[in-house]
Simulated assay, not measured.
Amino acid sequence: MQRASVFGLAILSLAPTGCGAGSPSAPASKAAHAEPVAHETELLKLTLSRHAEARLGIATVQIGTGSAQAMRETGGEIVAPAWNGGVPAGSATNLAQLGTQQVAADGEVDRTVAQSRLARIALARAEALVREEAGSVRGRDEAAAALATAHAAEETARRQRAMLGPSIATLDAQPRLWVRVIVPAADLAGLARREAVQVSPLGGQGTARTALPVTAPPSANAQNATVDIYYALDNRDRAWRVGQRVSVSLPMGTGPQQGLTVPTAAIVRDIYGGEWVYQRTAPGTYLRRRIEIASSSGGNALVTRGLARGDAVVTDGAAELFGTEFGVAH
Results as ranks from 00 to 15, higher is better:
residue 97 Q to Y: 05
residue 265 A to D: 04
residue 285 T to I: 06
residue 36 P to G: 09
residue 307 L to C: 09
residue 145 A to W: 04
residue 183 V to Q: 03
residue 288 R to C: 09
residue 128 A to Q: 14
residue 64 G to R: 08
residue 200 S to Q: 11
residue 275 E to S: 08
residue 205 Q to L: 12
residue 206 G to K: 09
residue 233 L to H: 06
residue 287 L to R: 12
residue 179 V to L: 13
residue 89 A to E: 03
residue 88 P to E: 06
residue 167 S to I: 02
residue 174 Q to S: 11
residue 103 V to C: 00
residue 56 L to G: 09
residue 122 A to H: 11
residue 202 L to K: 14
residue 83 W to H: 03
residue 69 Q to A: 13
residue 124 A to C: 08
residue 77 E to F: 02
residue 321 L to V: 10
residue 120 R to C: 09
residue 54 A to R: 07
residue 128 A to K: 13
residue 193 R to L: 13
residue 78 I to D: 00
residue 5 S to C: 09
residue 76 G to D: 02
residue 245 R to V: 14
residue 37 V to D: 05
residue 60 T to P: 00
residue 140 R to M: 13
residue 147 L to Y: 04
residue 270 D to Y: 01
residue 277 V to A: 07
residue 184 P to A: 08
residue 67 S to I: 00
residue 186 A to L: 09
residue 180 R to Q: 08
residue 17 T to M: 12
residue 214 V to I: 10
residue 312 A to I: 06
residue 111 R to T: 14
residue 151 H to W: 01
residue 273 G to H: 06
residue 115 Q to T: 14
residue 260 L to W: 00
residue 234 D to W: 03
residue 28 A to F: 02
residue 140 R to N: 03
residue 289 R to W: 01
residue 283 P to L: 02
residue 135 G to E: 02
residue 49 S to H: 10
residue 142 E to Y: 06
residue 254 T to G: 06
residue 158 R to P: 01
residue 209 R to I: 01
residue 282 A to S: 13
residue 277 V to K: 05
residue 57 G to M: 02
residue 125 R to F: 07
residue 223 Q to V: 15
residue 281 T to P: 02
residue 129 L to T: 13
residue 167 S to R: 04
residue 214 V to D: 06
residue 136 S to G: 12
residue 194 R to D: 10
residue 217 P to V: 15
residue 293 I to A: 10
residue 50 R to G: 09
residue 261 T to S: 02
residue 243 G to R: 01
residue 44 L to M: 09
residue 265 A to I: 01
residue 56 L to N: 05
residue 104 A to K: 12
residue 265 A to K: 04
residue 65 T to W: 04
